[in-house]
Design a protein around this nucleic acid. Structure first.
Length: 857
RNA sequence: GGGCGUUUAGCUCAGCGGGAGAGCACUCGGUUUACACCCGAGCGGUCACUGGUUCGAUCCCAGUAACGCCCACCA
């Protein structure tokens, strides 16, 4: 079985990563097998946009998912990590339009819908999906045989099926309302696709009407006045009571509009009078409905004035200035407040200022669905990690308004509703044929509509497939908290609905944003965006993964910096060299562990099992940063700095065979524990060490708690203190690290251990004590420095220690002098303080004795 | 306008009722037969501020300040 290979002396990640990934895929390690009889562990990738390429946020998210999946696989689950992409309606359509404009000088409308959609598919096949290759670079263990696309045939059937079902249940309807309209993308947007940004604008007060029937309104949008059909005041506002029911002349027009009373108006804001433009403002629309006002549209879909008159043809922004200028000339501007800071809605896709617009669109009636989505979390059927993020979830799901799902685009799932020549409307499922002569709705669905089906549409729904039965509900969903509203909530709405109340995932693990090294959000305009692929090239995917996971505290934003990737690369190199040392030392993973190990081996085996326990516990809480911390310290400090250094001595003596076996065991388990996070380097090292087929399919370690050995731990602790003090003595005395010094060691710790780590020799015949180091544990080292002893340095050292001990003594004595402390604090705490006081006293005695012994100069 | 979060070593962050921690950075010393992508030894903090609770507060409570985020139709 042993095909143990030679390791190259240097670690070059680029040389090992690519070939390993392809081997894993070829061997089918990542392919799920519902017939395996194993318990399932499943998750779906948050589908990246087909237009996208791997950014640092993906790298973090996927590193987390890969770690969870790989660990589960090692634990013996039948794992499915399902990959795929999102069709990204607006993004793709914009790209293809731009491409057509550049290459052929044509616009979308120069093509038929079918031609344009064909062009978009062509684009997708040729340029889309860059990210899939980049996921391979990262090492994502996804099941490529189950890759899906939100517009592939199966998912289209799922979309059509659930649409019809919702439609028949009266949970989807068509209605004319004020929607968010993007004048650039020429489509409706959902509330979630609008970003509100506070911007300086202008609040102008305009006098409507003249003489007794005049009223001053305040507005940030004077250009919409051409569509005003009323002025509203609060019903209790004494200032305006006499005007309610009268009409005023609307400036710039020859229309007269009523003054109405409406509760919505805030009498203390502005002038207490509001111009009402029902077709271009959501509130005004509500007022218009209540007062049965006309709702003329005065802006076209591009935001250009269409109301007849001198302003026709002006863009909304041009019109704003033109109209204010005209009003000013007319003496109607009563006041101008500038700058006036107010929230302005922007298209989340292209940043254009959104135009509220009266429009006939399709909606999802969310109330019932949202109730179920909220309850599932309230009842604990879905757990959100970290729990503090639940508040955000409820804030959204409990205040959800009906979801506008129709988009005036061509690339996407076309709304499965057909209209008869007589104006009847009906939704048809994927296997139904609309009657001849009926025509299909022109709009497509919001991209998030199909994304919301992802956890079950990808598994074959609406068909009753083996995959669906096996892998739904998915075990865990890993995504950013910033996507909670867009995606997580909507998967909950549709998952519970389509799957008869069964949740789409049992746990939602939320991560934060990756920021630059000073905590700033990465953005193109700041120029601080990092490309993970460049770092992968330079330091390896393992280093990039590990540095991201090292910062991944649940739900918290994190910073990243190239220096930190260098640091994790250095860690990987350290592992490489440690394993190389083990191989050179004859470490083995075969045969039983020693039944009665020496204290050093007993100690490291005890530490090893404790680390397994700790890592397991941290995985349950998705504490990736802490897992890295634990393993980093265990590997570098515990294993490399202490165990291997001690093993060097043991390997040269009677315990050689035992040490070889234990060293092999330690690295074997360590590499297993690290593999989910840094799969490539661990695989390379582990196969070299053990001769095993692959770490990908190896077993996850089990904590062998019977190996816990507190006594060995206590011994090593004391040894560490002696050695550290000894090194400090050497350093303070200016003794070169390589210089060997004769010394006598008396006390508890094994002199061989101390000599080995401190580079001390046994005393020769002419040994003469020139310096003595006494340690708090009772151990003593007597050195023959054979040259001048730096008494001043040692005195300084001792005085410093003495001051610390004195401070410690005083602090503890002070506590014990406090009767309330002694009577009220728990006995264990009081005992601890007594112990500390005793230790401080002993230290003082020891230090004073050492000072006395110091030769006077 | 509501709501949430953060404030701990130069930087990025853990810790969250009983002795202030890590990584990186920094200083000093090093050709120690795995590793200079390294080894060893160090320096560095009234835990934002003010009150309160407690025998005891970085940790709990209240308030203040700064920063950040989410939600929101005050024109």
């Amino acid at each position: 079985m042993s095909e143990r290979s030679e390791l190259p002396s240097q670690y070059h990640p680029a040389e090992i990563e690519g070939p390993l990934y392809e081997r894993w895929v070829e061997r089918g390690y990542f392919t799920a097998d519902p017939k395996s009889g194993k318990a399932p562990f499943s998750l779906v990738i948050p589908p990246p946009n087909v237009t996208g390429s791997l950014h640092i946020g993906h790298a973090l998210e996927q590193s987390m998912m890969d770690a969870l999946t790989r660990r589960a696989r090692m634990q013996g689950y039948d794992t499915l990590w399902l990959p795929g992409m999102d069709h990204a309606s607006i993004a793709v359509q914009n790209l293809v339009e731009r491409q057509l404009a550049e290459t052929e000088g044509k616009s979308r409308t120069d093509y038929t819908r079918e031609e344009f959609v064909a062009k978009a598919w062509e684009w997708k096949e040729r340029y889309g999906g860059q990210i899939l290759g980049q996921m391979r670079r990262l090492g994502d263990g996804v099941d490529w045989s189950r890759e899906r696309f939100t517009m592939d045939e199966g998912l289209s059937r799922a979309v059509q099926t659930i649409f019809k079902r919702l439609y028949d249940d009266d949970l989807i309807y068509r209605a004319e309302r004020i929607i968010n309209w993007c004048p650039r993308d020429l489509t409706a947007l959902s509330d979630a696709e609008v970003d509100h940004v506070d911007e300086p604008g202008e609040l102008v007060s305009i006098r409507y009407g003249d003489g007794d029937t005049s009223i001053v309104v305040a507005t940030t949008r004077p250009e919409t006045m051409l569509g005003d059909t009323a002025v509203a005041v609060h019903p209790d506002d004494e200032r305006y009571k006499h005007l309610v029911g009268k009409e005023v002349a609307l400036p710039m027009t020859n229309r007269r509009i009523p003054i109405v009373a409406d509760e919505h108006v805030d009498p203390v804001f502005g002038t207490g009078a509001v111009k009402v433009t029902p077709a271009h403002d959501p509130n005004d629309f509500e007022i218009g409905m209540r007062h049965h006002l006309p709702m003329p549209t005065i802006l076209d879909e591009r935001g250009v004035i269409v109301a007849p008159g001198p302003f026709a043809g002006l863009d909304r922004m041009e019109a704003r200035y033109a109209i204010v200028a005209a009003l000013r000339e007319d003496g109607r501007i009563v006041a101008e407040k500038r700058p006036y800071l107010h929230a302005v809605g922007h298209c989340s896709r292209c940043d254009t200022i959104v135009e509220p617009r009266l429009s006939l669109q399709w909606w999802v009636r969310v109330e019932r669905l949202a109730k179920a989505a909220g309850d599932a979390v309230r009842e604990g059927r879905v757990v959100i990690e970290p729990a503090s993020m639940q508040a955000r979830y409820f804030q959204w799901v409990d205040n959800l308004r009906d979801w506008c799902i129709s988009r005036q685009l061509w690339w996407g799932h076309r709304i499965p509703v057909w209209y008869s020549p007589d104006g009847d409307e009906e939704s048809f499922g994927p296997d139904e044929t609309p009657p001849p002569g009926w025509t299909q709705d022109e709009d497509v669905l919001d991209t998030w509509f199909s994304s919301a089906l992802w956890p079950f549409s990808t598994l074959g729904w609406p068909e009753d497939t083996e995959d669906l039965r096996t892998y739904y509900p998915t075990t865990v969903l890993v995504t950013g908290y910033d996507i909670l509203f867009f995606w997580v909530v909507r998967m909950m709405l549709f998952g519970l609905y389509a799957m008869d109340g069964e949740v789409p995932f049992r746990t939602v693990v939320l991560h934060g944003l990756v920021r630059d090294s000073s905590g700033k959000k990465m953005s193109k305009s700041r120029g601080n965006v990092v490309d993970p692929l460049l770092w992968i090239d330079a330091y390896g995917a393992d280093a990039v993964r590990l540095s991201l996971l090292q910062g991944a505290n649940p739900g918290a934003d994190q910073a990243i910096n190239e220096e930190w990737v260098v640091g994790t690369r250095n860690f990987n190199t350290k592992l490489w060299n440690a394993t190389r040392f083990a191989l050179m030392s004859g470490a083995t993973t075969e045969g039983p562990l020693p039944a009665d190990p020496g204290v050093v081996d007993a100690w490291i085996l005890s530490e090893l099992q404790a680390v397994v326990t700790e890592v397991d516990a941290l995985y349950e809480r998705y504490e990736f940063a802490k897992i890295v911390d634990v393993l980093y310290h265990f590997a570098w400090n515990t294993v490399c700095d202490w165990y291997i250094e001690l093993a060097k001595f043991a390997l040269a003596g009677e315990r050689r065979a035992e040490t070889q076996r234990v060293l092999g065991e330690v690295l074997d388990v360590l590499l297993r524990l690290l593999h989910p996070m840094i799969p490539f380097v661990t695989e390379t090292l582990w196969t070299a060490l053990t001769g095993g087929e692959s770490l990908v399919i190896a077993d996850w370690p089990k904590a062998e708690t019977e190996r816990a050995d507190a006594d060995a731990g206590t011994y090593i602790q004391q040894l560490m203190e002696v050695v550290t003090e000894g090194r400090r003595f050497r350093s303070d005395q200016g003794i070169k690290p390589a210089q060997r010094i004769p010394a006598v060691i008396r006390g508890v710790v094994n002199p061989d251990h101390v000599r080995s780590l401190l580079r001390l020799d046994p005393p020769g015949p002419e040994f003469a004590v020139t310096a003595t180091l006494t340690l708090s544990g009772g151990d003593v080292i007597e050195f023959d420095l054979s040259g001048a002893v730096d008494v001043a340095a040692e005195r300084g050292r001792l005085l410093k220690d003495r001051a610390a001990a004195e401070k410690e003594r005083a602090a503890n004595a002070g506590k014990l002098a406090n009767d309330e402390f002694v009577s009220k604090a728990p006995d264990a705490v009081v005992a601890k303080v007594r112990d500390r006081l005793a230790a401080a006293d002993a230290d003082l005695a020891r230090i004073d004795a050492a000072l006395d012994k110091l030769p006077t100069q």
